[in-house]
Simulated assay, not measured.
Amino acid sequence: GGGPPDRLNAVLDHGGRRPRLGETGPYELVVVDAADWHAAWAAAADLARVLGERPERVRKCANPQCVLWFLDVSKNGSRRWCSMEVCGNRSKVGRFNQRRRP
């Protein structure tokens, strides 16, 4: 379809969860059209759940070259990068190098 909700729903259309009761207690069984949909469906279902619970905490990485999104679990909600070790470090090194150039 068109926008992100349509694309997310298209993935979600390929599977679902079935509640089950086992010897150790209740659990949910993920059922998908084909095995290769399992990872994509699980990721889409988790994203839909998080967007329903804490949409303000789902953010795009502040690095303009990065395509990743992340769930900000910091206490004050100020996380900017998907990974401090990669995108955060690149940003800080870039700013440092700009200050040092004549």
Rank of each mutant, 00 (worst) to 15 (best):
G1Q: 10
G1S: 13
G2W: 06
G2N: 08
P4T: 10
P5E: 11
D6R: 12
D6S: 07
R7M: 09
L8I: 13
N9W: 02
N9R: 14
N9V: 06
N9D: 14
N9C: 06
A10I: 08
V11A: 01
L12E: 02
D13A: 15
H14E: 07
H14A: 05
G15D: 01
G15S: 03
G16N: 03
R17Q: 10
R18C: 01
R18M: 02
R20Q: 15
R20I: 06
E23R: 01
G25E: 06
G25M: 01
G25Q: 00
P26T: 10
P26L: 00
P26N: 03
L29P: 03
V31A: 02
V31F: 04
V32F: 01
V32P: 07
D33T: 15
A34V: 03
A34Y: 09
A35P: 08
A35L: 07
A35I: 09
W37F: 11
W37A: 10
W37I: 00
W37Y: 12
H38A: 13
H38I: 06
A39T: 13
A39Q: 13
A40Y: 06
A40F: 04
W41K: 04
A42Q: 12
A42C: 14
A42K: 02
A44N: 02
A44I: 02
A44S: 02
L47K: 07
A48I: 06
R49K: 08
R49G: 04
V50E: 12
V50T: 14
V50W: 15
V50P: 07
V50H: 09
L51P: 02
G52L: 00
G52C: 02
E53F: 02
E53K: 09
R54D: 08
R54G: 00
P55G: 06
P55Y: 04
E56Q: 11
E56R: 01
R57L: 12
R57N: 06
R57S: 09
V58F: 01
V58P: 05
R59S: 03
R59M: 06
K60V: 11
K60S: 13
C61Y: 09
N63M: 04
N63T: 07
P64I: 12
Q65E: 15
Q65H: 13
C66H: 12
C66T: 15
L68K: 10
L68I: 04
L68A: 09
W69R: 12
L71F: 15
D72A: 03
V73C: 03
V73E: 13
S74Q: 08
S74L: 03
S74D: 08
K75I: 11
N76F: 08
N76M: 05
S78G: 12
S78C: 03
S83K: 07
S83W: 09
E85V: 10
C87K: 00
C87H: 04
R90N: 11
S91E: 11
K92W: 03
K92M: 08
V93S: 01
V93I: 15
R95K: 15
F96M: 12
F96G: 01
Q98M: 10
R100N: 10
R100W: 07
R101P: 08
R101C: 05
R101M: 09
P102E: 13
P102F: 05
